[in-house]
Write a protein that binds this DNA or RNA. Structure first.
Lengths: 114, 114
DNA sequence: CAGAATCCAACGGGATACTG
DNA sequence: CAGTATCCCGTTGGATTCTG
């Protein structure tokens, strides 16, 4: 008989793997955090998410939209403006982003303190 | 005068970026979650973290050790056994992994339900 | 058992130039 | 303004083989 993986642990790991896969890449989680804060236009995001290129921003936004975490809304202004907004479902990530940010801030202090 | 990024948001994004960078790659967060659960040997991890290859497990463990999130302990048995354990600092990630897993489980249900 | 070494295909992501 | 298209290189990570 084979050795069975620990069930409780195993479920957790699968779930975590799912999440890490959904948010893989350098920018997705940051974009979500940003849009959790408030809805923003493409150019705003480009400023807020420091370091991201236009190409990557487009790509990541598209994927997030496909996963129904954000919505894209084209305003009929001249020139065109596009607004991105977190969906109701995407907003369920708020707590997650907060938890990550909190740990990250503490980690930063720890690194600097050395 | 340039447009200033929103400060509160900006700090959060930097922190999140740090975390995502620290745990980038396919497996690190899963390994941490696993070791948060209990200390394990190399071969146990290989079983629990389903799909990971030996090569990747070694690499990821080494990086996690470098960041002082886990410790490596060689037991003097025959043949050699190595035990990995979460550090006190690494254990501060427990809450984070729980939050991720919780969202992930819910997300899974949502996907399946469609 | 717990890795290290090698090989290699696939993907990620930056820079740049172009468009409606 | 909000993208798209192309080029291209560095990294990721799987498969396999070898070792103390």
């Amino acid at each position: 008989m084979e050795i069975e993986p620990i069930k409780e642990c195993s479920q957790t790991i699968l779930a975590i793997h799912d999440v890490m896969d959904l948010f893989k890449g350098k920018w997705k989680m940051s974009i979500i955090a940003c849009l959790c804060y408030k809805k923003m236009r493409y150019s705003e995001l480009l400023r807020e998410v420091k370091g991201i290129s236009g190409r990557m921003l487009s790509k990541e936004l598209k994927e997030l939209e496909m996963n129904e975490l954000i919505t894209r809304n084209v305003l009929n202004t001249q020139p065109v403006a596009v607004e991105y907004e977190i969906t109701e479902y995407g907003a369920t990530l708020k707590n997650l982003t907060k938890t990550i940010a909190k740990w990250g801030l503490n980690h930063r202090r720890r690194i600097i303190g050395k």
